[in-house]
């Protein structure tokens, strides 16, 4: 009973409250096959994926045995803590925000890259950073205009190309402009591309090379934007974008729906890319720094109404 004891010895009010809100799966009396079946369902429905789900359940079975965990609720808390640990970010993950940096934003079509950049630009500007946005999506109709609107809203400077222009040349122009204007953060918007399109991925690799070559002293960050409703393909997206652009962080958008974005767990554990931001709404401030606790809570806790729930946790 060591683990059980440890967990509940310093039981604070908050923890008890959290514990009570664990998903219904954990309300059972004992840990049996039905419990694991239901847990499997919960995990898979969150898009965590077959393999990661299997790994989590195997781990839990082992821990149940070796750490003598008897109650589903205790096992649930155990799991929550472990996943929270895996998903936790550290301060250095955001150090690019305080330096002179170039942030390349990549992803497949329709995940919300342009909108995310608009929101990031607004937030950085509000914090007093000098921001420039570069519209290197020269393919999609009106992508330039869309980013221009965001630049105007946020007050960030804009470097745009013309339709059909080589996006790398936009990147080049943006870097020289950012240098001469002493910009703190340069955000580069790229065209959405599916990860299995070799030529387009090559184009992205070229942009990355230009950044490395033209602005070597900058802090280089590559963020991949993933749609929260995407299933198992998100892992493949992260893997393949990482290969060509050395992705250093994940942004999950559209988590204000009922999608859970559980694939982030697989991405973190298989590719070691941390989630840095999540999008939970249309507003500028709805793009938030990732909080592992909140995330895990959304995955494994009962949905609570705002009145009963303790939002501070």
């Amino acid at each position: 009973m060591a683990f059980f004891d440890k967990l509940f010895s310093g039981l604070s009010k908050t923890r008890k409250q959290l514990d009570d809100n664990l998903a219904e799966v954990f309300d059972r009396d004992r840990i049996d096959e039905d419990f694991y079946d239901d847990l499997e369902e919960l995990l898979i429905l969150s898009d965590i994926g077959v393999t990661a789900t299997q790994n989590i359940i195997d781990d839990l079975r082992r821990d149940e045995y070796y750490e003598h965990i008897r109650k589903p609720k205790a096992l649930g808390m155990h799991m929550v803590k472990k996943i929270e640990q895996i998903m936790s970010t550290c301060e250095s993950d955001y150090s690019f925000e305080e330096k002179k940096s170039v942030v390349l934003v990549v992803g497949v079509n329709g995940v919300g890259k342009t909108t995310t950049i608009g929101k990031l630009a607004s937030q950085y500007m509000a914090r007093g950073r000098k921001v420039m946005v570069a519209a290197a999506d020269t393919f999609r109709a009106a992508a330039q205009e869309q980013l221009a609107v965001w630049a105007e809203r946020s007050g960030a400077l804009l470097v745009a190309g013309s339709d059909g222009q080589d996006p790398s040349s936009v990147v080049y122009d943006a870097i020289s402009s950012a240098r001469s204007k002493d910009i703190d953060i340069l955000l580069i918007d790229t065209a959405g591309r599916l990860n299995n399109k070799k030529n387009l991925m090559e184009e992205l690799a070229k942009m990355k090379r230009i950044i490395d070559r033209e602005y070597p002293e900058s802090c280089k960050e590559t963020l991949i934007v993933l749609d929260g409703a995407t299933g198992q393909n998100a892992l493949e997206q992260a893997r393949q974008f990482k290969e060509v652009t050395d992705v250093s962080g994940v942004i999950i958008t559209k988590l204000d729906g009922s999608a859970k974005g559980g694939i982030a767990i697989a991405i973190q554990s298989e590719l070691q890319i941390p989630v840095k931001y999540i999008g939970v709404g249309e507003g500028i401030d709805d793009l938030q720094k990732f909080d592992a606790k909140e995330y895990v809570r959304a995955l494994f806790y009962k949905e609570v109404n705002d009145e009963d729930g303790d939002k501070e946790q």
Binding site: L45, D227, G228, A229, G231
Partner: peptide
């Protein structure tokens, strides 16, 4: 979107 996960049902 063909890439949609479990959410497609909802």
């Amino acid at each position: 979107d063909a890439m949609t996960g479990q959410e497609a049902v909802n």
